[in-house]
Amino acid sequence: MDINKIISQIKEIEGTDIETALSYCADDEEIYVETVQDFIEDDRGSAVNEAFIQEDIDSYHINTHALKNLCYTIGLVPLGDKAKELDDAAKAGDFGYIKAHNDELMKAYTDTVSRLTAILNK
């Protein structure tokens, strides 16, 4: 596994902040790549979507909050920002906002995970 190549490809994802993400990983590129793998395997998006389907706003809040933190930890700022918006809506009890924007979050999440998976499996 060529860690430098993986990181350079992840940097190509629009809005990704690798430098900050590395600071969360003790500036260790191997730890960073392992954290990205953990993010993929965690599949937090399924938990978010299941809470959405069940209209369980408390679970939705917990899972979007976790997704937001995971995204920021690995430098996926735009995806983290989308999760934050929905986390804030859940915290405020605004299920109307969630209904209007959950699909957008799920599409961005799925696209990002697919792209990261392709990068790591090359």
Results as ranks from 00 to 15, higher is better:
Asp2Leu: 09
Asp2Cys: 02
Asn4His: 09
Asn4Gly: 09
Ser8Ala: 10
Ile10His: 04
Lys11Met: 03
Ile13Glu: 13
Glu14Gln: 15
Asp17Ser: 11
Asp17Leu: 05
Thr20Trp: 10
Thr20Asp: 13
Leu22Trp: 04
Ser23Ala: 12
Tyr24Phe: 14
Cys25Val: 00
Cys25Asp: 01
Ala26Asn: 11
Asp27Ser: 13
Asp28Ser: 10
Asp28Trp: 02
Asp28Cys: 04
Val33Asp: 11
Thr35Tyr: 06
Asp38Met: 14
Asp38Ile: 08
Glu41Pro: 00
Asp42Gly: 02
Asp43His: 13
Asp43Phe: 02
Ser46Met: 10
Ala47Met: 13
Val48Pro: 04
Asn49Leu: 15
Asn49Thr: 14
Ala51Val: 03
Phe52Val: 03
Glu55Ser: 10
Glu55Asn: 10
Asp56Met: 08
Asp56Lys: 04
Ile57Ala: 15
Ser59Glu: 15
His61Gln: 15
Ile62Asn: 14
Thr64Glu: 09
His65Ser: 10
Leu67Asp: 08
Lys68Met: 03
Lys68Leu: 04
Tyr72Met: 08
Ile74Lys: 01
Ile74Ser: 01
Gly75Ile: 09
Gly75His: 07
Leu76Glu: 00
Val77Cys: 05
Pro78Arg: 06
Leu79Lys: 06
Gly80Asn: 12
Gly80Glu: 09
Asp81Phe: 00
Lys82Phe: 03
Ala83Trp: 02
Lys84Arg: 14
Glu85Leu: 14
Ala89Glu: 08
Ala89Val: 03
Ala90Trp: 06
Ala92His: 03
Gly93Arg: 02
Asp94Phe: 05
Phe95Glu: 07
Phe95Gly: 04
Phe95Met: 08
Gly96Met: 00
Tyr97Ser: 12
Tyr97Lys: 13
Ile98Asp: 06
Ile98Met: 04
Ile98Phe: 00
Ala100Phe: 01
Asp103Arg: 03
Asp103Cys: 02
Met106Leu: 09
Met106Cys: 00
Met106Arg: 11
Met106Gln: 14
Lys107Leu: 13
Ala108Ser: 15
Tyr109Cys: 05
Tyr109Val: 01
Tyr109Gly: 00
Asp111Arg: 02
Asp111Asn: 13
Asp111Ser: 09
Val113Tyr: 08
Ser114Gly: 11
Arg115Gly: 01
Thr117Arg: 14
Thr117Ala: 11
Ala118Phe: 13
Ile119Trp: 06
Asn121Gly: 05
